[in-house]
Design a protein around this nucleic acid. Structure first.
Lengths: 150, 150
DNA sequence: TTTTTTATTGAACCCGATGGCAACACTGCC
DNA sequence: GGCAGTGTTGCCATCGGGTTCAATAAAAAA
């Protein structure tokens, strides 16, 4: 799929893709940068960002834009939602299949043309729920913009 | 609720709250800064950020952390979801009540302690759907991290 | 090989947001 | 009133994710 877009499979682009496929979880750009740099020490962060963008537009990888944090990337499998730890920002897949036609629920009732939806669960990862002083702990203010059941 | 926290209702804090209550929509911090500065020309951006944070912790206002954009604030009414324009970043309330116990759907199936959820619709606002060159238009790449029905 | 086109590099830059800190202003208290 | 004590402000520097730019390198085309 590179042919018809005049894009080239450069060494950098290929290594980024290969390494991303080996990584599990939902790494951030700088994490990917760190890993790729072991094979290509001279690669620049800009190249990593640029190629992650290209690869995500091509559909080779998935770019996650979660709330209030840096972007994350992973290789595409099937669509799913995510759950994010409010303490350490760890992101896992949420065990819930896509809600089909979910956006149609509001389609006639808003002036927007609804194109999609995003669902994100928040909570505490196993480490942070047991060890509230785990590294990466941030002041935990219950996010009042979330719908938390009383 | 200021008493028991040793916080003071200063002039700046009060003006920020008053102005925010008059504004509709979901203004960003710099928008609030601009409005408040008409009454308090010497107020600093840092003060605005600090007080927005304080007010949101006190529950006086709501801090929205939507995906991939700056934070937005509004006065608290009842909980609701939001819809964001992918072109101009305009944010409206979504005409959909809170899904009660939504996070319980995954509660037994993840190692996380699920605390809440966030739902965000994305689409095109009336201006951008009719006038794709409206100010603020950004390159619209179909976000493949969304669940968009084919 | 030479030419043409696309990609990479490294640094500078952008922008939202935060932190440090001296000066300031409330709030008791004498 | 004068005086601590402490919360707050304004200012400025800084941070961090991310992007842009001119120069250079590399890949495809001729």
């Amino acid at each position: 799929m590179l042919k018809e877009t005049n894009l080239r499979m450069t060494r950098q682009r290929r290594v980024i893709l290969e390494e991303l496929r080996k990584m599990d979880g939902h790494p951030t750009a700088d994490k990917i940068y760190a890993v790729v740099r072991k094979r290509l020490p001279k690669i620049s962060l800009g190249t990593v960002y640029r190629n992650l963008e290209v690869l995500s537009v091509l559909g080779e990888i998935q770019k996650l834009e979660l709330s209030g944090s840096q972007k994350r990337f992973d290789c595409i499998s099937d669509f799913h939602y995510h759950i994010r730890c409010t303490c350490c920002d760890r992101v896992d897949d949420a065990p819930m299949g896509p809600l089909k036609d979910f956006e149609n629920r509001i389609n006639g009732e808003t002036s927007f043309k609804v194109l999609g939806h995003r669902i994100e669960f928040v909570g505490l990862c196993p480490d942070c729920r047991e060890n509230p002083t785990s590294p990466g702990l941030k002041k935990f203010i219950p996010p009042n913009h979330l719908h938390v059941e009383k």
